[in-house]
């Protein structure tokens, strides 16, 4: 099978999972975070189902295979430090998630449903990533200006 067809189909499994699980729905995500109000604990089950399969599946993959099917090697994220950048970034992400009710993994599949709200959110995320990328380059390499 072609590599791009494979990536398309795996993306499809992801998008289907997001849709079926309810992660696609900002109202549901916000209700998950609203314990003091209209609490909907469903998202605990999304996390539980996803983690159980990924935990067991990753172990199976790494035990059975030296390398992935389409690439010469597994590309795992290099160990990064638990620093202010990681914690601060995660904190800011959580605030944005709590304000909008969308996360990137929920919003991209939601684009398929054709609502302008999703498009506005995704455009804002892309703008944020571009600004952050620019800011980080300036902070890390101030001499480059």
């Amino acid at each position: 099978m072609n590599k791009l067809v494979s990536a398309f189909l795996i993306g499809g499994v992801f998008g289907l999972g997001i849709a079926v699980s309810g992660m696609i729905n900002p109202a549901k995500v916000l209700n998950f975070f609203d314990i003091a109000g209209t609490w909907d604990p469903s998202l605990i089950f999304v996390m539980g189902g996803g983690l159980a399969i990924a935990f067991a599946g990753y172990r199976l993959v790494f035990r059975r295979r030296e390398a992935p099917v389409f690439e010469p090697a597994f590309a795992l994220p290099t160990k990064r430090a638990i620093d202010a950048e990681l914690v601060g970034g995660a904190a800011v992400f959580g605030i944005g998630w709590g304000i909008a009710g969308f996360c990137p993994g929920g919003a991209i599949p939601a684009l398929g449903l054709g609502y302008s709200a999703t498009l506005i959110f995704v455009a804002a995320v892309i703008a944020g990533i571009i600004v952050a990328r620019f800011a980080r380059t300036r902070l890390v390499q101030p001499a480059a200006t």
Binding site: A100, G101, F102, L113, T118, A124
Partner: peptide, 29 residues
């Protein structure tokens, strides 16, 4: 597929921008 966006457009713009900044520095979502 149940879908409803219970927040105003300004929250989508502001929240989305913070999500973009946050996931970049935090290295993931």
């Amino acid at each position: 597929i149940a879908f409803s966006v219970p927040v105003p457009t300004l929250a989508l713009v502001g929240g989305g921008f913070l999500v973009g900044i946050g996931v970049h520095f935090g290295g993931g979502c």
